[in-house]
C-alpha cells in the first residue's frame, strides 16, 4: 500500500477526531453559557421583552437603567460589603480550623478518635432545616442576633471540610512525618511546612466551596438578621420575586452584579480549583 495514503488516512482520522472533539466541546460550552448569556442580555431588556416568544436573544435597546433600578431597590452596597466580609472571614476561619482538625484525625493517635469522627460525620446527616429553630434560639440567647457574630462564628468550622482534608492528609505517607519528627520538627511545623503545601489543591477546594457557600448563603442570613445593615446579596435578590410574578430584568441585573466577584475569584484561582476538583472528585 502507498505509504502516503497511509499518512493521509492517519492525518485525516486524527483531524476528524479533533474536529468532532472541538465540536462537542463547543456545543457543551454553548449549553453551559446559555444561562449566563440569557442572564446578561435579560438584564438589559425591557420587561416586555423578557419572555417574548419566539425568544428575543438581544434587547432592542440596551437598558442600563435596569441596573440602576435594581441597585436602588435595596442598599446593595452594604449587602455586597456584608457578603464579602462574611465570605472572606468564614473562608479563612474554616480553612484554619479544618486543617488543624483534619490533621488530628488523619495523623494523630488519641482516645476515641474514630468514635469522635463518626459522631462528626453523623452530624452531616441532620437536615439543616431541622436545626434552624434550635440554632436561632442559641444565636438569640448568645446575644448574637442581627450581628456579624451570627453570620460568621457558626461557620468557622465545617465537618465536610474536615472529612475532605482528612482523606487527603491520610494519603501523605506517615514515614514523612516520622522523618520530620526525628529531625526535631514539631507537629505544627510539620503541618504548616509539609502537609499544607502538599495539600494545596484540596485546601483550595475547601476554601472555594466555603467562599461560594457563604457568598450564596440565604436562609441563615435571612433568619439570623433583621436589619439591612446586616443582610447580604442573596437576601436582596429575593426582593424581585413574589408569589405571582418576578421582575426578571431587575433580578437578572442584580444577579449579574452578584456573580461578578465570584467570576473574578474563579479567574484567579481556576488552576487550583480544577486541580482540587480533579483530585478530590468534588465540584
Amino acid at each position: 500500500m502507498d505509504s502516503r495514503y497511509l499518512i493521509d488516512k492517519h492525518f485525516l482520522r486524527q483531524h476528524t477526531y479533533r474536529l468532532l472533539l472541538y465540536l462537542l466541546l463547543f456545543v457543551s460550552c454553548a449549553i453551559m453559557l446559555l444561562p449566563f448569556f440569557w442572564m446578561v442580555t435579560t438584564s438589559f431588556k425591557l420587561e416586555s421583552e423578557v419572555l417574548r416568544m419566539p425568544p428575543q436573544w438581544f434587547p432592542k435597546d440596551w437598558l442600563w437603567r435596569n441596573y440602576i433600578k435594581a441597585w436602588n431597590v435595596a442598599p446593595f452596597g452594604r449587602y455586597f460589603f456584608n457578603s464579602f466580609f462574611m465570605a472572606i472571614t468564614t473562608t479563612i476561619g474554616e480553612v484554619i480550623t479544618t486543617i488543624l482538625a483534619a490533621y488530628a484525625f488523619a495523623k494523630m493517635r488519641f482516645f476515641g478518635k474514630n468514635v469522635l469522627f463518626a459522631i462528626l460525620l453523623a452530624t452531616l446527616m441532620i437536615p439543616g432545616q431541622m436545626l434552624l429553630i434550635p440554632n436561632y434560639v442559641t444565636i438569640t440567647r448568645l446575644g448574637w442576633f442581627d450581628r456579624y457574630e451570627a453570620l460568621i462564628i457558626p461557620w468557622l468550622a465545617s465537618v465536610f471540610g474536615i472529612f475532605l482534608l482528612r482523606q487527603f492528609f491520610r494519603s501523605i505517607p506517615d514515614e514523612l512525618q516520622d522523618a520530620a519528627r526525628i529531625d526535631g520538627c514539631s507537629r505544627l511545623r510539620f503541618l504548616w511546612q509539609i502537609v499544607v503545601p502538599l495539600s494545596k489543591p484540596a485546601i483550595m477546594t475547601v476554601a472555594l466551596l466555603k467562599f461560594l457557600g457563604s457568598w450564596n448563603a440565604f436562609l441563615w442570613v435571612l433568619i439570623m438578621t433583621n436589619s439591612n445593615k446586616m443582610r447580604t446579596v442573596p437576601v436582596g435578590l429575593t426582593l424581585f420575586s413574589s408569589e405571582v410574578g418576578t421582575a426578571y430584568e431587575q433580578l437578572m441585573a442584580a444577579s449579574v452584579l452578584a456573580i461578578i466577584p465570584v467570576l473574578i475569584l474563579f479567574f484567579f484561582t481556576q488552576k487550583q480549583f480544577i486541580q482540587g476538583v480533579a483530585r478530590t472528585g468534588i465540584k
Partner: peptide, 8 residues
C-alpha cells in the same frame, strides 16, 4: 412582612 420590591 414578605412584600416584594414592587409592593414595598
Amino acid at each position: 412582612h414578605a412584600m416584594s420590591s414592587r409592593h414595598q
